[in-house]
Design a protein around this nucleic acid. Structure first.
Lengths: 160, 160
DNA sequence: TAGACGTAGA
DNA sequence: TCTACGTCTA
């Protein structure tokens, strides 16, 4: 019993298709889509450079991500009402992914219809187009990352 | 993608053998051994009666469970340094299981050799022999449940 | 809406 | 050691 895809990688994961649905975030770990069992941003090292591998955009956690037709504005991690987010860890990895033009897997966490927990839909590869800082609801600085879906990928369509 | 054994039950779970090892607590959920993804005590209703289905005894969480040759002294749930544990939820279910003589699946959570997380070993069916209250390290009342392994089951032996 | 013995990587 | 957008049941 080891994960099928135990290796962290950038880009598609063999055997996983766009629109695949997972019941638990831990399943994302098992199949190799997203190894960070709690965090929303997963990344790996290429030499000394942290590069993002995948992000999970979860509904209803107060992060006010914006998702529309292949464009996702994703809120960075860390910080709180009294502390600004810093360009480290996952935030740094996303910034590097922009510079290096490496794709990021996007998984959308959606509240179930019965409101019990979430399910997760793999939405394919995105590129980080830009990022900036803005004030969060508590007044602290948060990072925002604009990701744009790589064209030519099948739409999720009815499976979602 | 639904769990293989989606039905809560008392007693053995089809397809699961003593000594089976699981890498994540969420896998216990997937296979139907233990549905409560966070809690240590899982239970179900038989009519109005809560009965325990399974417990996870995790090393290193400060619960000072005692495990020796088929006898487990398991600490109840709830309470804290300022509040006594109450005979509700999982604690109540274990007490009822004693009275009704219904078996409880026991899963042992063991810290990995590399100290990174835990793995979980199914140890078979136990019966609650007695329970009592005692003072925890913080002075509050906690429940202790003495469970005894049902005889005639294969030993875990080398698989563990 | 609260409560529950969490987990893996940096 | 700390951090990380947790998740399900009653």
């Amino acid at each position: 019993r080891r994960q099928v895809n135990a290796e962290k990688r950038i880009g598609p994961v063999p055997g996983i298709e766009i629109g695949d649905v997972f019941q638990y975030k831990s399943e994302l770990n098992l199949v190799g889509l997203h190894f960070d069992i709690m965090g929303g941003i997963d990344y790996m090292n290429r030499g000394d450079l942290k590069l993002a591998t995948s992000i999970v955009s979860s509904e209803g956690n107060g992060y006010s991500d914006v998702f529309n037709s292949g464009v996702l504005v994703y809120t960075g991690e860390g910080g709180n009402v009294r502390n600004d987010q810093r360009l480290v860890r996952g935030n740094l990895a996303l910034a590097n992914s922009m510079r290096e033009k490496t794709p990021v897997r996007v998984i959308l966490g959606k509240t179930r219809v019965d409101q019990k927990g979430k399910h997760y839909v793999y939405d394919g590869l995105y590129l980080v187009e830009k990022y900036w800082q803005e004030r969060g609801p508590g007044g602290n600085l948060v990072f925002k990352f604009k990701l744009v879906r790589v064209s030519g990928q099948p739409s999720v369509g009815l499976k979602r």
